[in-house]
């Protein structure tokens, strides 16, 4: 598939689950393609979000975010997320790391909810009205019902994939497998497409199975500026630039013109080209 075909499959108002975790293996090339399309009113589901959520909020593509975390880790807070939260510009629903997983898992298991203790005695239960407290029918224990999260689309980025849609993840797996299984349609970008024979050698690292995949796009450096272990580390210098460009509207328009409203090959040229990226980021 091509990036444009993926984007064409994502209509306004879609619920999109995004894999990766903060600064690790985010499907950023797909995210940028989505951001420069005319698609609007996306409902995002992320477990641990970072530049993915922040960039889509920055381009006005989002109406709602379901999240356990959105931040830039060692670099600080996510600027557009923070501003939108403080201006109450979008709908936000704070979940937690396991409850996002449980919500996706409920959809996979085709049950309306899954029970947990997580969130009890915290304020997450007071601000998140999607959760329900209930007493278990066996012993009367107080529990939280986590409703099923039903993504229309999942976007993930992996190290290698075959053309049929099996995907190899070498670093931390994050929640990509759950996203891929729960979504109606899963689009996977990869650093490199390899043959199905070659893929066999990766054994248990073949974490994404083709029965769950709708399409595969080969996008080298497709997670940049987040990292894709052990191929390349996060580009913290670009992310620092991103934070500076996010300081005001004019600067943000300049960032968008230079890095979002362009295709992946020009995007890579504007990072100094692949050779420079390799020298700087290859692990």
């Amino acid at each position: 598939m091509t990036v444009d075909q993926v984007v064409a499959d994502i209509p306004n108002g879609s619920t999109v689950a995004i894999g990766g975790s903060s600064l690790s293996r985010k499907p950023m090339a797909l995210i940028r393609a989505l951001a420069r399309s005319s698609v609007k009113d996306l409902r995002l589901i992320v477990d641990v979000g970072g530049p993915d959520v922040d960039l889509l909020i920055g381009t006005g593509s989002v109406s709602e975010v379901i999240y356990a975390f959105v931040g830039f880790e060692v670099l600080g807070l996510a600027p557009h997320f923070r501003r939108a939260r403080q201006q109450q510009a979008l709908r936000f629903e704070e979940w937690t790391e396991y409850t996002v997983m449980a919500g996706l898992d409920a959809t996979i298991k085709r049950v309306p909810f899954l029970p947990t203790h997580a969130g009890l005695a915290t304020d997450v239960l007071s601000v998140n009205t999607s959760f329900r407290r209930f007493k278990d029918p066996f012993h009367g224990e107080e529990l939280v019902a986590v409703p099923a999260l039903k993504p229309d689309v999942a976007l993930i980025h992996v190290n290698y994939a075959d053309a049929k849609g099996n995907g190899v993840i070498l670093g931390d797996g994050h929640v990509d497998v759950l996203c891929a299984k729960a979504a109606r349609r899963t689009y996977m970008s990869c650093e490199r497409i390899i043959s199905s024979d070659e893929l066999q050698r990766y054994g248990r690292d073949v974490q994404i199975l083709r029965v769950h995949t709708t399409g595969v796009v080969e996008l080298p450096w497709g997670a940049h500026p987040t990292g894709c272990a052990p191929d390349y580390r996060a580009d913290l210098r670009h992310l620092q630039d991103y934070l500076r460009y996010s300081a005001n509207d004019d600067a943000w328009r300049a960032y968008a013109d230079q890095y979002i409203y362009t295709d992946q090959s020009r995007y890579l040229e504007r990072q100094g080209g692949v050779e420079a990226l390799l020298a700087r980021l290859k692990v």
Binding site: Y67, G71, L77, T96, V124
Partner: peptide
């Protein structure tokens, strides 16, 4: 006043 990051896995 300041939106930080979200509760992440601390409730669990």
């Amino acid at each position: 006043k300041v939106a930080m990051v979200g509760s992440r896995g601390i409730p669990e």
